[in-house]
Amino acid sequence: MNQIFQIIVSGSIQGIIYALIAFGYNLTFSTSKTINFSLGNVMMLGGVIGFSLYVDIHSGNLLGHSYLFPIIGVLVAGMIAGTAIHKFAIEPSLKLKSEFTWVLATLAVGIIIKNAVEQIWSTGDFRFPSPLGDVPFRIFGTGIYPQEILLVVVATIIVFGVESFKKYTIYGKAIQAVSEDKETASLMGIPQHQVVRISFILSATIATIAGLLVAPLTFVSASMGSSLGIKAYAVSIIGGLESGKGLVVGGLILGISEFFTARYISSGYKELPGFIILILVILIKPNGLFGKTMIKKV
C-alpha cells in the first residue's frame, strides 16, 4: 500500500515536470500553430547555465554565491533563446506557409543547441546539489525531496500566473485573441508578430526555469533535455494542445504509468505504456483528450 502511494507521489511529481514543459509547448502552439521541437534542449540549457553559475564543474563544490545568480542567468538565457528561436526558425517558417518547415527548423535549432553545449561545455553528467538540501521529508512513510516540493510550488505559480495574466490583463487577452483569430486580432490593432514573439520568449523562459528546477533531481548533461522534451510533447498532445486541464491529466498519466511500469514490470519498459496510450488517444480522439475538433470548411 505504502509502495503504491510512493509510486503515485513520485509519478505525479514527474508528471508535473512534464506538464510544466508541455505548458511551454501550448503557449507557442496557441499563437503560432507550431510545435517548438527545440524546447527540450532549451530546458537543458537552463539546467546547464544554472549549474555553471552555481557549481564548480571540476570539483563539484558550490561556487559559494547566492542562488540568485543561476536564477537571473536562467531568466536571461530563456529570453535570449526564445527571441532567437522565433527570429531564426519560426518567423521564416511562417512566411513560407509550408506544412512542415517549422518541424525541421525547430529540430535543427534543438540539434544546434545540444551540439554547442556538448562542445563548449561538456559531454559529461554532473550532479547539481539542491539549494534546499538532499534530505527527503517523510510523509506517511513516503519520501519527498524538498526540491520536489519547490518544483511543484514554482510550477503551480508559473501556470496560474501565466493563466491569470492571459485572463485578467489586456495584453493577455490580446494573446488569446491572436491565438483565436490572427486576422481579426490585427483589426483590433493588436500587433500579432510581437504577440507571437512574446509567446516564444515566455515559453523558452518557462523551459529554462524548468531546467534549473529539474537539474537537482536528475543529472545535468547536454542530453538531459532530449527525452524530457519528447515526453512533454507527448503530454501536451495527449491532453490536447491548448487545453490547460489536458496538461495536468496528460502529465499524470505519463508520470504515474512510468513509475508503475518501472516498479512492477521493468525499468527498461517504463516509457512504453505512456507512448502506447498516446497512440491510442490519437486514434480515438485525433485532437487529444480535451482538444477542440476543428471543422474544415469547403
Binding site: 507527448a234 519498459y269 516509457e271 498516446l278 497512440i279 485525433p286 485532437n287
Partner: peptide, 23 residues
C-alpha cells in the same frame, strides 16, 4: 493515426512509434 490526425498530432505518433520499437 494519419487518417484523422495531422500536423503536430501526427508527428508525435510517429515519434512514439519509433520509441516503442526502440524500447
Amino acid at each position: 493515426p494519419s487518417l484523422r490526425s495531422s500536423g503536430p498530432y501526427l508527428a508525435v505518433t510517429t515519434i512514439a512509434y519509433g520509441i516503442i520499437i526502440y524500447t
